[in-house]
Design a protein around this nucleic acid. Structure first.
Lengths: 131, 131, 131, 131
DNA sequence: GTGGTCTAGACCACA
DNA sequence: GTGGTCTAGACCACA
């Protein structure tokens, strides 16, 4: 389970975990019924408090992204509605940021440049890494 | 001073205040050397503790957005470098959100639709207000 | 009465006034029994609140730097002991700053350079202004 | 954590705290990633309100001297640029005091004596402690 | 346990 | 009147 955490970030560790696991589901790196590492082993691997992983798993279960079987472990639910919901939520964040940007007097063109840069830069970076 | 606070929000009150005043500066609703309402009067108007407004004002002063004179009041600094910095910071937030969206497998077109919607919606709202 | 105030400074205006008048006494620009401008006229000239000038004059009188005659005005006392005391107090400030600098691990040589710079720079500046 | 506060001082408690911790960093008594006492424990030890310590810690974090992790604690950042900046700021204070002294007609020799006294006195104090 | 936010209210220096 | 500091104490999210 390759997860990079930013310990200095203002974003709570448990939220970073939720985001990362959500991304792995959306990108197909985690599929229906795949088993997640146990709370303790993941906590050990990441060097964080088990409570933190526990909190992330609980939230993911509450949102239907994973399901837990007592004594067996935690698994990806893979329900399509959940996946759609994850993407919607992320789009909402973009909308919020753009709304605030507009409230700051930032023009549509600036935002569009910003979007272009993100999608173009990453494509070229992936090309480099593959090439 | 028209400021709406969301008391239910996860975002702290003093941060909401900072954001709102920053927006008013960027939109030209507050200009250089304009006087802000006093800590106490704004606190009274918003129904929050003076300490909370004080914290917002002190953070704004540290960021160079306003300056405070004991015994006289708090005023907009209006330094251009500060204004530019405020906009950059907001653009960074958009970039972050878009980056995460991309990491979730959301396509460029979806983001662009989202941007269009934000800017078009507001235009129509302005049209309604004028018409 | 040529006095330049820094309205943006953290140092209170009344303290700036006290310092400036003290300096003028020490530099011989104000001599024994010289009359000071009235509280109101000085406040008007400087664009500050009369209370502020009043407070400065009161402190100066308490320290024996000036004396006030009701209905006549305020005057320089010019007592030698007072002049010596003003200089001592300023030296104390230097000592305090140097003590803190030493507590910060700053070496004696750095401080000495700093002293040289102040005295050399100003001499050359005075030369330019006179020449 | 040995910190002496002067409750009678005009200097605010939180500023005294900031100064003291800054000095300990500069003197190498606190090094990179060293953990500071928690807000509550330090407040208890010093007999002040936790909010006051909190304010000091937050200011130190904003200046890059320390970093705080919610749920874990506060730690020394140890960034060299920050350390250099702390010393520069202290030297500025010395320069200001010397400039004012000169404006008061105090000669260079008087200042130099004052510097000598500070650095010699402390050396003898260290000698006493060792001897 | 940790840091962060907030209230209610006092007191201060300053203009 | 103004901003700034501080206390006492509550509650929250997080690890």
């Amino acid at each position: 389970m390759l997860i990079k955490l930013d310990m200095q970030s203002r974003q709570p560790i448990y939220e970073q975990l939720i985001t990362k696991i959500g991304e792995m589901v959306l990108m197909g790196q985690l599929s229906q019924n795949d088993q997640l590492p146990s709370v303790r082993s993941l906590a050990r691997d990441l060097g964080v408090n088990p409570n933190t992983v526990q909190k992330a798993y609980q939230d993911l279960e509450r949102d239907g992204v994973i399901y837990s079987l007592v004594g067996k472990g935690s698994f990806i639910s893979g329900r399509t509605e959940v996946i759609a919901h994850l993407q919607e939520r992320q789009l909402m964040k973009v909308t919020q940021a753009v709304l605030q940007a507009k409230a700051c007097g930032i023009g549509k063109d600036k935002i569009q440049q910003c979007v272009e840069r993100v999608y173009d830069t990453d494509l070229s970076r992936e090309a480099q890494e593959k090439g």
